[in-house]
Amino acid sequence: MCTTCGCGDPDLVPVELHEKILAGNDRAARHNREHFAQAGVLALNLMGSPGAGKTALLEATARALRGKWRLAAVSADLATDNDARRLEAAGIPAKAITTGQACHLDAELVHHSLHGIAWRETDVFFIENVGNLVCPAIYDLGQAANVIVLSVTEGEDKPLKYPVMFKAADLVVLAKCDLVPHLDVDLAKIEDALARVMPRPRMMKLSARTGEGVDQWIAWLEEKQAPFAKWRRAGAALAAGHTHAGGGGNDRSR
């Protein structure tokens, strides 16, 4: 209450904050990221339009890495566990996150889903986000990198129309490239559009159906996974008391 002049007006106190509204999500994401780093697991956030080919990319990844790496995934959709079942059929242990009305995953949802899946025993953990080029872009989940699947049927100017999403990408996988001969799509235009929304544009062409470009994708995964494998070995050595007994514990040197 104003006591200066006795007018009785309430005292209004301005509090200057300048803080992120998503600070709570960012904290949860940091927590997830620490979990993944400690376990030596490469976590990837896979985003893209509905029908872009996110699940098909993971199926092709499972075929290419069978017997080599252990993979797991959580797959988000508003309804059904169809994608998780497809991934399971492909040999990737998977859990569905049905978001109901939510158009995106957030770090809390991902954290919660980790309790139901053996993610620690994996080399790469995929977080297949809700098919959507808008909302998922602004939520950090604790991933090591964002991968956007963009299919050749979606239109060359998609990156220009959804700059927030593509700005966040570490890699764009141009999917369904086997369809290019049947379409009027100009791949150079897609590359040009990406260069206008991504400061470090990186795109690779791929067809999950024919296997074209899968080797390049696996090479990218290997490059990203290498530091995590190193941390895992270091952690295992520490846990084993530096005995270097070989063959035991979690040391899976390749």
């Binding site: 309430p10 509090v15 904050l17 992120k20 509204i21 998503l22 602004i138 700005k167 400061p199």
Partner: peptide, 20 residues
């Protein structure tokens, strides 16, 4: 290129409240 501060942020700048 680098994005200038604030370009991609959603920030709570100020809260004005009545404190008795």
């Amino acid at each position: 290129a680098e994005l200038a501060a604030g370009s991609d942020a959603i920030l709570l700048e100020t809260v004005e409240m009545e404190v008795p």
